[in-house]
Design a protein around this nucleic acid. Sequence first.
DNA 1: CTGGGGACGGGGCCC
DNA 2: AGGGCCCCGTCCCCA
Length: 292
Amino acid sequence: MPRSFLVKTHSSHRVPNYRQLETQREINGACSACRGLVVPLLLPDKAASSTPGDPPRPWDCTSIIARISLPLPRHEEAWGASGPDPLQVGPVHPWAGRAPSVPLKDSLNQLNLPPRLLLPTRWPPIPGPAGDQAADRLPGGAARAPRGPGGFQCPHCRKPYHTLAGLARHRELHCRLRTPRCFPCRHCDKEYSSLGALKMHIRTHTLPCPCAICGKAFSRPWLLRGHIRTHTGEKPYTCSHCSRAFADRSNLRAHLQTHSDTKKYQCKSCAKTFSRMSLLARHAESGCCPGP
DNA sequence: CTGGGGACGGGGCCC
DNA sequence: AGGGCCCCGTCCCCA
């Protein structure tokens, strides 16, 4: 029987953990580096409209990030045919001249991102300081210095920028760096937080280590070496108690448990102990621990 | 049903 | 960054 069942499918990933996503939204979407990036653009009263169907508010950071990092959505696509483009509102338009070319949704689709990576349509409004204090500070704490050379300063690295546009592009980089990366496997639905982990996982699909004796392929060389021992009979791991030898260190470790007086895994109902978790699980399934 | 051996996968750490 | 190794864990199978 193939051992492919051992590959975890992470079924929980099939259904997004929305609560977690909410948390990520708080972290990623409203991170201090991009939070309210465009608040200075929020001038007017209309921009703060929140009735259903309204276009995203100007502080809708995902819209901004999407516009920075992706082909920009058409005006009508993002805001509705008659909706105002908040980026056109206000004295500064950091992305002026970056004409939208592809609807945002299409842009994301072109990237073939997994659903959990797709940006939500809009973030919740970011509560700002009471009154007009916000007018004195850029979102995320960036100092609104007087206009002029270096008039805008990144609150994270202190790098000065002449224009808000420059600062905005720079801070978007901060935001990206803070965003947990996600590397989906193209062969299955698993995702990894690092490229190295993904590459390691992909080996379980490509199986680049074939056995020269039987042809069975393995994901990693040391797995192949362990398998080859099943052909050669080599058993380099010896039990110090009974001198029994094993080809696999894990199996020796499990074996050592049989010599232990105190078994590692104990049944909560009958206090019986087991040398392996699987034995305890089987014991529980057999009816010792009736469920509630 | 239980105990244990065999085979193997994945993540993490170290070099 | 990539490979080697370790540890933990899982499942199958058999006595």
